[in-house]
Simulated assay, not measured.
Amino acid sequence: MAQLKRFGFGLQALIVLAANNSEQCSSAEIAEQIQCEPTVLRKILAQLAEHGIVEARQGRSGGYQLTRSPEQITLAEVYKSLHEKEPQWDRMLDTTGNHLFGQKMHESFSKIMTDINTQVNQVLGTYTVGDFLD
């Protein structure tokens, strides 16, 4: 699944959990509400649990809930939790070759990619899950 799709579904799942006022929700309930395949959502929720954003409880009365208030969870934290690989724009580096011109472009592109990553993290850091609640 594309990384940005995973981020979108993960963020929507967190908003659903935040709107439920600390009550647990099953992955099936969340998946139905955000129209996401339940197995995909469980993988996303597992990553969020690994990073301490959600808590998972197993069993018949189990489910997911946020580990802290929605206002304390930044989108930057969510984004980092769900991205195992480099962002899509880093693929631009794959176009540079091992020749002199390609090496110069690789260096220039690397600086641009660093700036983009910094800006994305800064922008996402200014928003929280709480910002999406009515």
Rank of each mutant, 00 (worst) to 15 (best):
Q3K: 10
G8D: 07
G8K: 06
F9N: 01
F9R: 02
L11T: 12
V16E: 13
A18L: 06
N21A: 14
N21W: 14
S22E: 15
C25I: 07
S27E: 03
E29I: 01
A31N: 06
A31H: 01
A31K: 00
I34C: 00
E37C: 08
V40P: 00
L41V: 05
I44Y: 00
I44K: 03
A46I: 00
A46R: 05
Q47M: 09
L48C: 05
A49W: 02
E50I: 09
H51M: 06
G52M: 07
G52Q: 06
E55Q: 10
A56P: 08
Q58H: 10
Q58N: 12
G63I: 00
Q65Y: 08
L66P: 03
R68W: 06
R68P: 05
P70K: 09
I73K: 06
V78F: 01
V78A: 04
K80R: 12
E86P: 07
P87W: 02
D90I: 13
M92A: 15
M92Q: 14
L93T: 08
T95D: 13
L100W: 10
H106N: 13
E107K: 14
F109K: 13
S110D: 09
I112Y: 14
M113I: 13
T114M: 11
T118D: 15
N121C: 12
T126N: 12
D131A: 11
D131H: 12
D131Y: 12
F132A: 11
